[in-house]
Every structure is written in structure tokens, then in C-alpha cells.
Amino acid sequence: MKTIVVQEEKSIGTKESLMFFPEGIIGFSDHKEFEIVCDKSKEPFVWMKSIKDNSLAFIIIDPKEFKQEYNPVLSISDKAALQIDNLAECSIYSLVCVPKQSDEISANLLAPIIINKNTKIGRQVILQEQDYSVKHLILEDMLRKIEDTDVSSFSQAK
């Protein structure tokens, strides 16, 4: 039995944070509603919790935290299912896997979570013909990105 202790858990706001996944997510097709929950102790990681079963919770992250040039291309059927014409109408998240070896933390870039910002309809899409990894290691990229944002501290790097 696992006990989850959450500190300073804060929902963004019930209406804003509730997402509808008509097909659930892969392997969890009967979980059709999720809530995105911010937890300060986990930033920049964010929770995506199942409404049906609160003990089912994924960790997600905005891929821009580690990869500025992430360009998922959605198929016609994904766009139809999400009712969008282009990606600008969507929020994009990657599912994160935090294993026992913390430096092996990875994000799934091949199957991102895409959410229509207006309707809050979401879907886990599998990118076709794009060579992204299901287990993209993110620790180094995230640390480097933080360093790169401040040019002067970068020039002082050993």
C-alpha cells in the first residue's frame, strides 16, 4: 500500500483544470476525465490526476522546459478528434517517468498529451514518422536550459 503525501497542493481552478479525454490515455482507456494540479514542491512538474480514481496520477511537464525545438506534427485523425486546425490552439505536455535512478528521468516525446485550449478535450497522440523517443532523458537538457537562460553565468561556467 502506498501513501502519497502532498504538500501545498493547489488546483489551478476547477473549471480551468478539468480535461476530457474521450479515449482516455493509452492503457487507461476508461479514465476519461483528468485534473491538472499544481504542486509547488514538484515544480516544474505537474500532476495529471484521474477524476475516476484519484490514486491514478501522472507526472507531466511542458516540453519547453527541456526542448525548445519540439515540433510534434499531428495526423488528420488526431486533429479531427481534437477539433483543431493547428497546434497553436493546444497545450502540449509530455508524460514524465521518474524511476529509482533519478538521473534517468525521462519524458515521452513520441506520444504527447495534446489538449484543445478552448474545449479542454485532450488526447494522447502517437506521432507518426517523427523520430522522437518514448524515453527521452531530460535531466541534462533541463539543467543546461536553466544555465543558458543566463548568459553571464554561462560564461563563468567552469
Binding site: 490515455i25 493509452i26 516544474p44 512538474f45 506520444a111 494522447q124 502517437i126 518514448v134
Partner: peptide
């Protein structure tokens, strides 16, 4: 491909919370 994503989703639902806190603090 479906299976690899299915498996990885399951892994993503079983996160090591202590490591997550540690990483968050690091960032």
C-alpha cells in the same frame, strides 16, 4: 509502438516521489 507507449504510461503512473521532490529542488 502501442505496447511501448502503454508500458511507458504505466511507468509514468508509478513515479518515485522522493526523487521527484529532489529533482524539483535541484531545478
Amino acid at each position: 509502438i502501442y505496447n511501448s507507449i502503454h508500458d511507458q504510461n504505466i511507468n509514468s503512473s508509478k513515479n518515485n516521489h522522493a526523487n521527484l521532490d529532489k529533482l524539483s529542488q535541484l531545478f
